[in-house]
Design a binder for these strands. Structure first.
Lengths: 261, 261
DNA sequence: TCACTTACGAACAAATTTAATCATTAATTT
DNA sequence: AAATTAATGATTAAATTTGTTCGTAAGTGA
């Protein structure tokens, strides 16, 4: 029996360690990685060179810094995990409104990206979206017909935007649209931080029979920068349990049902 | 040796051990599994190959890493590594024809997906594609304007197809198109196994000033199922070094340059 | 600026991992 | 029990990864 020394890292595992480290830290030195990975400097430098090649970090003298644009290919990172439970909760409620054979729009955004988790079990569904995380989650399910909206890919949002995208949406019609917003109020309607995003969201709403707004309770009766639609386009707002209950009747009077459980 | 060796693991039990280990750890080495399972390296490697085939993990040199959905969704696996060197070689040559500020179409297919490796260094570029692996490789690079063609997402090919996609391509015009095919001959022109794929390829070629066909030498003077374009739409065929040189002059006489180095 | 230190990468050589082939063993079917 | 099939391991050559050396480049402080 020849006892072999057991290596605990492979090249790819090292790279994962490096990238994971950079998720928590702004920068890393070659020495730090050498210690963590039990490999020589030159090996680490070669790893860093490869990772830079792929755009996953930026090399510096003595180490590397995070490439803020990259972090994780098709998942949001920090924003994604903020309020994760609430977002999942909201999406779970939303999934109750999805029926077999529905054709649905799914907007992009960190809240909406949890929706894919709950809809992969439906028997048959057509999903039209501009969100790459959604595509990536649903692509393996043969029961879902997936349609991606074409246009310019925006890295920061992992989604497709632009005139071409907006025009494309008009070619489709869906039963239901599941959209996001940065604020909603009876006074100003739906508002957003970003104009591009607002245009896409509006187009989806316009081309669907029923419109569901998914947003956490902190956004209710709050206004953001760009006003892009009146609240009347909505059939339903789905939010979390922290909702101030006084809003429910107010919204009901304006024909919008506010659902939180 | 007179003591009977007692087997403690079956193939399925080993695989369970491997997968369970990867639930708790980011990565695993072949040696670690060998120790845990009392099997030889080759057996473990065969296990890992099977598990990778099923998409349950990702093999690396020396072991395997966990398969988190988003990381490999948009990459081909088995077909990708067939003939890898030739495909890279072809793409490297092709990249010489790409200049700064070009607007280029990139077709989908395992050969073409290596092209992204070589074009991320260009200063400024617009890439229009229906290939999700290409999108996933280029999304991090701010020097590249990325446009995805909308339509139905086909999991098997990790790409976008359909009438809507074909129509969309007509909205764009590119300097150069880099396309693939399953066969090319002077008699039949460009041929493909798949009709949907052929239509997309043809549209790209029609909407570009220059057309480059990237295909390995085994496809030269071979015919496949669907004839979709005459060879005259091509400006250039880029192939590998195993090319039979007699074809070069023949193709040149028909105004197609056949490049292999 | 200069000297000084540290980091870097190319080239080579060593070590490790891998795939391919073949022979052996175990399990299953006939 | 014989034949067939599946699983395993040993051996080899090839491919990949790694570390060492050494000359060059980059940052640092006086």
């Amino acid at each position: 029996m020849n006892s072999k020394k057991i290596k605990t890292t492979t090249p790819e595992a090292r790279k994962k360690i490096i990238l994971n480290f950079l998720k928590d830290n702004e920068s890393v030195t070659v020495q730090e990685i050498v210690n963590d990975c039990n490999a020589s400097e030159i090996t680490i430098r070669r790893d860093l060179a490869e990772l830079e090649e792929k755009g996953l970090l930026i090399r510096t003298h003595g180490g590397a810094i995070r490439n803020t644009a990259a972090e994780n290919l098709f998942t949001f990172n920090s924003k994604m995990n903020q309020n994760k439970e609430n977002k999942e909760y909201i999406c779970k409620i939303a999934s109750r409104f999805i029926e077999d054979n529905d054709i649905i729009f799914i907007d992009c955004g960190s809240t909406l990206s949890f929706l894919s988790k709950f809809i992969s079990k439906k028997e048959s569904l057509t999903v039209i979206t501009n969100s790459l995380p959604i595509i990536s989650e649903l692509i393996n399910f043969s029961n879902i017909k997936l349609i991606i909206i074409g246009g310019e890919v925006v890295n920061e949002r992992k989604a497709v935007y632009g005139h071409s995208a907006e025009r494309t949406i008009g070619q489709y019609h869906a039963n239901k649209a599941f959209i996001g917003a940065d604020g909603i109020s009876l006074a100003k309607g739906l508002t957003s931080y970003d104009e591009k995003e607002a245009s896409i969201t509006l187009k989806m709403a316009e081309n669907a029979d029923e419109v569901f707004l998914l947003c956490d309770s902190t956004k209710i009766e709050k206004n953001s920068f760009v006003t892009f639609a009146p609240y009347s386009i909505l059939n339903c707002v789905i939010t979390d349990n922290d909702l101030d209950l006084k809003y429910i009747s107010k919204y009901q009077k304006n024909n919008v049902s506010l659902i939180h459980e």
